[in-house]
Simulated assay, not measured.
Amino acid sequence: MSRYYFDLLDDHILAVDEEGLELPSLQAAQAEAAKSLADMARDAVHGSSAVAGKRDMAIEVRDAAGPVMQVKFTFEIERSKH
């Protein structure tokens, strides 16, 4: 098993994962990142930050050797002008 770290990037705010998770494979790390990113997106839509505009979120996955992947999500809210 390898330890993977999941750094959260919400627009330009970075939260570095200092603990990480022991996971059996890179595929398991990808699944964990995708699940976490879906949770971030859901919280953003339901939270006070759901205002018109574009929002970029990502989870940057790394192991002891460095970055291994980035899972990204972008959503945009456009409101009609009437």
Score class of each variant (00 low, 15 high):
K35G: 01
Q27H: 04
D63M: 00
P67G: 02
G53W: 01
R55C: 07
A58R: 11
L21G: 00
A15V: 15
Y4S: 01
R79T: 04
A33T: 02
L21W: 05
V61Y: 11
V51E: 11
M1T: 14
L8M: 08
D11Y: 03
S49H: 08
R3K: 14
P24M: 05
G66T: 01
F73G: 03
A34C: 00
G47A: 04
S36W: 08
S49F: 09
Q70Y: 00
F75G: 11
L26G: 06
R79E: 10
R42T: 09
R55N: 10
H82D: 11
S48F: 06
D17I: 04
F75L: 12
A65P: 01
R55L: 08
S25E: 11
Y5L: 02
V51F: 13
V51N: 12
V61E: 13
V45D: 01
S36N: 14
E19Y: 02
Q70P: 00
A64F: 03
R3H: 05
L23C: 08
A38I: 06
L8A: 08
K35N: 06
G47I: 02
E19T: 11
K81R: 10
S36L: 13
I59V: 13
V16H: 04
Y5E: 01
A65H: 03
R62W: 09
P67N: 01
E78K: 15
D39G: 03
L8D: 01
L21N: 06
V68D: 03
E22V: 14
E32Q: 12
V68I: 15
D11H: 10
I59A: 04
A52G: 05
K72A: 07
E18R: 12
S2W: 07
L14I: 15
M1E: 13
T74A: 08
I77N: 03
L26N: 07
H12Y: 07
S36A: 12
L26T: 08
S2D: 15
R55Y: 02
E32R: 12
G53Q: 01
A34D: 09
E18F: 00
D63Y: 00
S36E: 12
R79W: 01
G20S: 10
S2G: 06
D39K: 09
A41M: 14
L8H: 14
D17T: 09
D63R: 00
Q30T: 09
Y5C: 00
F6T: 07
R62V: 00
F75N: 14
L21K: 12
